[in-house]
């Protein structure tokens, strides 16, 4: 009889500890989520009243209430474009090679190890590399092109890894069916592998761009200016060929740097501007990440092999 009571007591203690741990787990999660909420609410309460039409079409100014983020968001937009242009083709091509072509040998092992390693390298060292290589050795200047290339290299591992995951989830039967119809390897990739993995790749691209848009440190390192009261050269010409790429070589600022600049001033009026810029940045990254999550769920539902 005694042993039965001992057993019951034992079970009770263990159930108690189980419960304690569940509460601890819930609290850990809540702590993280409440912090996120506090951050958003705090930023919104300070920043949202400052956001109006003028804020988007004004240049930065000595007067806090007249300052705007025109040059910053145009700069961010141009750099995103350059980043996407250099990182997407390179990243997808590398992902395709590593999943579909590479054989298990030391070359592919080095490449794989290297990609894992690259993801752990601090972003500021990319900026130092870009300053030494792009700005001074290749003489690209402290330009939009340099910034775009830097961020492109920074997000490359993200695109490679998500491309590989997307391709890996395609079953071999698809490849075999394609080969059975007489398609070559490249035709199989071009008409089957890439279209079927496009959802996953797109998710990776969105995630990587949302990472790039908030990146500050490497751009400060390559020498982004913090006060820019002009826009990059317009990309349109009145004469043939109607477009030019002079804007690639223009100096720039971006939203996170503008925010950092306002934040490091002592006057609180500028802190309000920083909060407003922060809310614009935050909304953009949250929309991009939300879109990526939605895409992922949608494709997971649709693709049933």
């Amino acid at each position: 009889m005694e042993s039965r009571e001992a057993l019951l007591a034992n079970i009770k203690t263990r159930q108690k500890w189980d419960f304690v741990f569940a509460v601890a787990g819930l609290l850990s999660l809540m702590f993280a989520l409440v912090t996120l909420l506090a951050l958003i609410v705090d930023l919104a309460m300070t920043g949202v009243p400052r956001i109006n039409y003028e804020f988007f079409v004004n240049f930065p100014s000595r007067f806090a209430e007249r300052a705007g983020i025109l040059s910053a968001w145009v700069g961010s937009f141009c750099i995103m474009l350059t980043t996407a242009f250099c990182a997407i083709p390179l990243g997808v091509a590398a992902g395709v090679y590593l999943e579909e072509y590479s054989k298990k040998n030391w070359v592919s092992q080095i490449i794989e190890l290297n990609i894992i390693n690259l993801a752990g390298i601090p972003s500021i060292t990319y900026g130092l590399m870009a300053l030494g290589l792009f700005v001074y050795k290749l003489k690209l200047g402290q330009s939009i092109l340099t910034a775009g290339l830097t961020l492109g290299l920074l997000v490359l591992p993200i695109i490679i890894v998500t491309t590989r995951e997307a391709i890996r989830s395609i079953p071999n039967t698809i490849r075999e069916a394609s080969y059975a119809m007489g398609a070559s390897k490249w035709q199989t990739i071009r008409y089957h592998i890439l279209p079927y993995s496009s959802g996953g790749i797109l998710t990776g691209v969105i995630i990587s761009l949302s990472r790039a848009i908030g990146e500050t440190a490497p751009l400060i390192t390559i020498g982004a200016l913090t006060f820019i009261a002009f826009l990059p050269t317009a990309p349109f010409d009145a004469h043939i060929p109607f477009v030019n790429f002079k804007w690639l070589m223009d100096p720039f600022t971006v939203m996170p740097i503008q925010m950092f600049n306002w934040l490091s001033r002592p006057q609180t009026e500028f802190h309000v501007n920083a909060a407003a810029t922060g809310i614009v940045l935050l909304v953009m990254t949250l929309i991009m990440n939300g879109g990526a999550i939605w895409l992922r769920l949608r494709f997971r539902k649709k693709m049933k092999w």
Binding site: L39, S210, I213, G214, E215, M259, F260, L281, L282
Partner: peptide, 11 residues
């Protein structure tokens, strides 16, 4: 992890 780090700096 997606929130820009400069926003964390503000926070």
């Amino acid at each position: 992890a997606a929130v820009p780090t400069v926003v964390y700096g503000y926070f």
